[in-house]
Design a protein around this nucleic acid. Structure first.
Length: 489
RNA sequence: GGUCCCUUCGUCUAGCGGUCUAGGACGUCGCCCUUUCACGGCGAAAACACGGGUUCGAUUCCCGUAGGGAUCACCA
């Protein structure tokens, strides 16, 4: 992975150009909440003609994996969350982070702390017992009697008096007393940077002007600001967006849909533009608009429209949005998308004839599905080889119709001059009228015989698409089964 | 527990002091279309958490209460 080393940006003048960033840690896949955060960052940057950067926060060596990095990049690509420039890998910048920590130390804005982990744990335990807030007490803040050969961490000497207010673009002004914040660790005893240090340094060096992230980071912003001010750097604009919750109102977990976006693609069969549209509307609104294209979103997106309360994830609505995009999607694209699913179900690769049938029936099929799985299973009957399997409802339909009716219907169809939907329907209607049947009485058993199910696209379209030979063959198969069973019964 | 944040139909949201008999979407229910299932069309039920203020007037502003959430590491 080629890590880039951006040059430190100008520290005094505010950047005229908007730069946003998405900074996931590669400890898992790109989940749905992260995807939304990335989308908001992208849209905001594009709206302002700025840059959208991607930074992988892989400083936690134990938990970061290459597989996770690949999954995140893959997910972002699938959703069209195209970032600008090189991906920045945080771990590769550790030396720069340490440099800043030592700069702070030299300037007196940070200090060495020799408190041991056990000592700190004891402190926390005492605070917990006394029901005091758990904070580092600053015991090494002003000491200079440093023991030799002892490991130490570098802590920020944060202001203890006064308060800090962040003018958050989503949450509004948020104020916290400095007494609430303790002196955070910047550099660990092994010399590696902490997340707090790394984020601030990287955001600065990358020229990030707007930090748009989940509001689980709102508290962190105050500590990061202290660091930024200690360095005398330009403060970014903050926008903390509410997290996405599960249908039960609790934080989104694996139970509810905090799956990788690859699951939405592969397992649920959703279209990327549908996921994007749904995510956009989750926590953001633009009047009564529901279906919003990327171009439109880029034009309309603003931070002011982001809601301040957490939104619940609703799979039903996502499916509905997906159904919309499915219906307006190009038929050839859909054929390509369901081909692997069909091949797996059929146990064979699809041929040109299969593709042709799918292409011709797609316009009708896609109206009956809200995801690619349903679209594929709805298309399967077209490609099955005789005799096709019959589901319970179809079998019941045929049984109650009886062989005489089916045979009469078969003969009526066979008599059609042209094997077209219109001609076939005319024959069926003529038969029904002659026998005083409703059209459904003829159509339903035929549907069962030809599709193996009680529901399908319009019967006469199906017959026309399947062709004369295949259609009559399937009806004969059903007839054969019926008479055989009738004989044994 | 400390700190911080949030609160309009079941859900996502519109609303930014009078336009609200609170609008749209998903879901639910009913009707229409119809050979089935869908799609599509029409319609219905469904919300301003509660209590105080401010104001001539609060869904909109302020304060409490309740409920929900986030965060308190040498993790990110």
């Amino acid at each position: 992975m080629g890590a880039s080393q951006p040059a430190p940006a100008d520290t005094t003048t505010p950047a005229a150009r908007v730069v946003t960033r998405f900074a996931p840690s590669p400890t898992g896949f790109l989940h749905i909440g992260g995807a939304r955060t990335a989308l908001f960052n992208l849209l905001f940057a594009r709206h302002h003609g700025g840059e959208f950067r991607l930074r992988i926060e892989d400083t936690d060596r134990a938990r970061s994996t290459d597989a996770a990095i690949a999954a995140i990049l893959d997910g972002m690509t699938w959703l069209g969350l195209d970032w600008d420039g090189e991906v920045v890998y945080q771990f590769a910048r550790a030396a720069r982070h340490a440099e800043v920590a030592h700069q702070l130390l030299a300037a007196g804005h940070a200090y060495r702390c020799y408190a041991t982990p056990a000592e700190l744990e004891a402190l926390r335990e005492a605070q917990r017992a006394a029901k005091q807030p758990m904070r580092y007490d600053g015991r090494w803040r002003d000491r200079t009697d440093w023991p030799n050969d002892q490991p130490y961490v570098i802590r920020l000497k944060a202001p203890r008096e006064g308060q800090v207010t962040i003018e958050d673009r989503v949450q509004g002004p948020v104020t916290v007393a400095n007494a609430e914040l303790d002196d955070m660790v910047l550099l660990r005893s092994d010399g590696t940077p902490t997340y707090m240090l790394a984020v601030v340094v990287d955001d600065h060096d990358m020229g990030v002007t707007h930090v748009i992230r989940g509001d689980d980071h709102l508290n962190n912003a105050f500590r990061q600001l202290a660091l930024i001010r200690a360095m005398g750097w330009q403060e970014p604009v903050y926008a903390h967006i509410p997290l996405i919750h599960g249908s039960d109102g609790a934080k989104l977990s694996k139970r509810h849909g905090a799956l990788g976006v690859d699951a939405y693609r592969d397992e649920m069969g959703l279209l990327p533009e549908a996921v994007e549209n749904y995510l956009l509307r989750l926590g953001w609104g633009h009047g009564d608009d529901e279906i919003i294209s990327r171009a439109q979103a880029t034009e309309w997106f603003d931070l002011a429209g982001v809601g301040r309360g957490p939104a619940r994830f609703d799979m039903k609505k996502l499916e509905s949005v997906n159904g919309h995009y499915l219906r307006s999607s190009d038929d050839a694209r859909l054929v390509t998308l369901i081909a692997p699913r069909l091949a797996a179900a059929l146990g064979r690769a699809l041929g040109a004839a299969d593709q042709d049938i799918l292409q011709r029936s797609m316009a009708e099929l896609k109206k009956r599905a809200s995801n690619l799985n349903d679209l594929a299973s709805g298309a399967l009957f077209y490609l099955r080889s005789r005799p096709i399997p019959m589901d319970d409802a179809a079998a019941k339909l045929l049984a109650s119709a009886g062989p005489d009716l089916v045979l009469a219907a078969r003969d009526a169809l066979a008599a059609a001059g042209d094997w077209t939907a219109a001609a076939l329907e005319a024959e069926a209607r003529r038969l029904a009228e002659a026998r005083q049947w409703k059209l459904g009485q003829v159509a339903q058993p035929l549907r069962a015989a030809v599709t193996g199910a009680a529901q399908s696209p319009g019967l006469f379209d199906v017959l026309a698409t399947l062709g004369r030979e295949e259609s009559l063959g399937r009806i004969d198969d059903a007839l054969g089964t019926m008479t055989r069973e009738g004989a044994t019964a």
